[in-house]
């Protein structure tokens, strides 16, 4: 191996592994053909290779210049979003459990204690319709559920709370996915039926932790950790599409963690709360290529 080839190989080593495996030898051939009688890579070639490597790494990590088909992301969301949304009922279920344990279910002021219960009921219907592969009906119900969350967030003062913005976002994006994306069937082709089971178990686990471990610090941290691991396992942690679909499903965790991070450090005016908790996750989704955006090629 010549010194030139050795140096080019070292530069090509900077590229993402999949690109190196697919194109490394081919690029090396092009570089050696272009080199003429040069014995070492020129600085322009070296800088160009380093820049190309950085670009491709950025594409893979944050989809900075595209590279992720949003339709595929939304197909997975169409399949798994309705199930992920069921975890939103955790607080309402905890309240319900408390009144049941107190033996006073009949005296419970429903509209004050669980104003969001009807909305989660709608999402349960969405999940059932989606599992039964009734896409159109599921889409219509999802819009009703999403509208319910928006009403709760902005009209019902009892329910709105910044960390819950994630449920509004995931709800709306699930409705969008069921309406316009390739559909849950395409999502099933990508992640398989096993993903539905994995996510259902995850939702059951996080809901149980939320209901039974309410007030327990370990349970309160374990629930989001289980949600992250479960969503990634269901969507496919090795796939760029899967990681982004998981991110959409995990928006409620994201906003809850954001609220925890901000608590005590910044006092956000109530008027700005919705903007911060709704806009920031959307910016993250856009930056990571999980939402449609215009890209110049």
């Amino acid at each position: 191996m010549s010194e030139l080839e050795r140096r080019y190989r070292r530069l090509l080593g900077l590229y993402p592994r999949d690109h190196r495996e697919d194109n490394g030898e081919e690029m090396l051939g092009v570089l050696l053909e272009s080199a003429g009688d040069r014995r070492k890579p020129g600085w322009r070639d070296s800088a160009d290779l380093v820049r190309g490597a950085v670009q491709l790494h950025l594409r893979r990590v944050v989809a900075v210049d595209g590279g992720v088909d949003v339709r595929e992301v939304f197909a997975v969301v169409a399949l798994l979003g309705p199930i992920a949304m069921l975890a939103g009922a955790t607080t309402a279920l905890h309240e319900l459990a408390w009144w049941v344990r107190a033996g006073a279910l009949g005296q419970m002021p429903w509209t004050q204690q669980v104003p969001d219960a009807p909305v989660w009921g709608v999402w349960a219907v969405v999940a059932a319709l989606s599992v039964c592969r009734l896409r159109r009906a599921a889409a219509v119900a999802a819009w009703v559920g999403a509208a319910g969350l928006v009403v709760l967030a902005f009209v019902g003062p009892v329910w709105w709370w910044g960390p819950r913005a994630g449920w509004v976002l995931t709800g709306v994006l699930t409705a969008v996915a069921l309406t316009w994306a390739a559909g849950a069937e395409r999502g099933r082709e990508q992640v398989g039926t096993r993903a539905v089971l994995v996510l259902a178990v995850t939702v059951l686990a996080t809901t149980s932790l939320g209901v039974l471990g309410f007030g327990d610090t370990v349970a309160e941290w374990l629930a989001p950790a289980v949600a992250v691991v479960g969503a990634l396992a269901a969507c496919g942690p090795r796939s760029r599409t899967g990681r982004r679909a998981a991110l959409v499903l995990l928006l409620p965790v994201m906003t809850a963690l954001l609220a925890t991070a901000l608590t005590g450090s910044i006092r956000i005016p109530t008027a700005l709360e919705a903007v911060v908790f709704l806009a920031l996750p959307v910016v993250v989704l856009l930056a990571l290529g999980a939402m449609p955006r215009r890209i110049r090629l």
């Binding site: 690029m27 272009s34 160009d48 290779l49 820049r51 491709l56 595209g66 090629l297």
Partner: peptide, 18 residues
Amino acid sequence: LRAGTLYAALDRLSTAGW
């Protein structure tokens, strides 16, 4: 054009289906 730029572009264009 140099190889680094070409292959970064080909990667994008393949993904776009062009």
